[in-house]
């Protein structure tokens, strides 16, 4: 053991309890899987852009603007997916039987990716709205609730930055994630609940308004950006683990150093007295 720093449970993937060879093999497999996801995501993005911009035909009504269909809905889907994962991980953290700081890290990692996807959804939607509706922004139920979703999760990320005991912070932010998630079904159903400029979902269970190559390209975009989402979350989760370890070891070192200083001063005082 280190002479100065007390042992710290790194808690990255629960490695501390497993033998070194098992950890190494598990890490190697996880790294390989992440690389495969990254490469598959990259290939998917290239294919989506090629099919979306050059191969698929323009729409009879929307013309070339339909090409935004291969970007905008998949971004919104990934935002929902991200917030769903954040919600589930937060619920797992709050449930006493499954309470583990790894769920807190997963919730934070997924929410951060969700904010990125929501921002892109809002901007690409605005770029689609300008030539279609003649305006960059309207206070439409879907747009407004999506903007609210973005702000809610920005608030959640800000809440995660508030310093404090990791357990208390995790509990506080888990409640925040559950509250923020209430807006997700409101965003999804807003087009059916209220009159909206925005069209109803292009694809919903048992119904699709696109067919043929356009439908396949759209499906490809959903799979591709979901892979990108997985890659983001895996990297952000690892980063959160490193930050937690840094925080814990840094604090442990500072405390140990203080104790050592205190001990040295006491010895010096005793030497002076004797």
């Amino acid at each position: 053991m280190n002479a100065l720093v007390p042992p710290v449970d790194h808690g990255l993937l629960g490695e501390s309890a497993a033998p070194h060879a098992v950890i190494s093999s598990r890490r190697h497999r996880a790294e390989l899987a992440l690389r495969i996801v990254g490469v598959a995501g990259l290939v998917g993005v290239v294919l989506t852009v090629w099919l979306g911009l050059w191969v698929t035909p323009p729409d009879a009504y929307m013309g070339n603007l339909v090409r935004l269909l291969y970007i905008h809905p998949s971004m919104a889907w990934d935002a929902f997916l991200a917030y769903g994962v954040s919600f589930a991980a937060s619920a797992c953290y709050l449930w006493p039987r499954t309470r583990d700081l790894r769920f807190d890290r997963l919730a934070g990692a997924s929410a951060e990716a969700g904010v990125v996807f929501t921002a892109i959804t809002l901007v690409t939607g605005s770029l689609w709205g300008r030539p279609t509706w003649g305006t960059w922004w309207v206070w439409d139920p879907l747009l407004t609730t999506t903007a609210l979703l973005f702000v809610l999760y920005l608030g959640y990320l800000a809440l995660r930055k508030v310093p404090g005991d990791p357990e208390v912070r995790a509990k506080r932010t888990a409640v925040g994630a559950l509250v923020a998630f209430i807006d997700v079904p409101i965003v999804y159903f807003s087009v059916t609940w209220w009159k909206s400029l925005h069209q109803a979902p292009t694809i919903s269970p048992g119904k699709s308004d696109v067919h043929g190559l356009m439908a396949w390209t759209m499906l490809l975009s959903f799979v591709t950006f979901s892979l990108v989402y997985v890659w983001f979350v895996a990297h952000r989760y690892r980063l959160a683990g490193l930050q937690a370890r840094e925080e814990a070891e840094g604090l442990a070192y500072a405390l140990a150093e203080r104790r050592a200083e205190g001990g040295a001063k006491a010895v010096e005082k005793n030497e002076v007295l004797t």
Partner: peptide
């Protein structure tokens, strides 16, 4: 219309690339 489409792709892919690079 095509300029709006291209701008949408640039924003989406550029945003994802920036976030990915920042993570790494």
């Amino acid at each position: 219309d095509y300029a709006y489409v291209e701008a949408g792709y640039v924003v989406a892919l550029g945003g994802l690339a920036l976030y990915g690079a920042s993570l790494v």
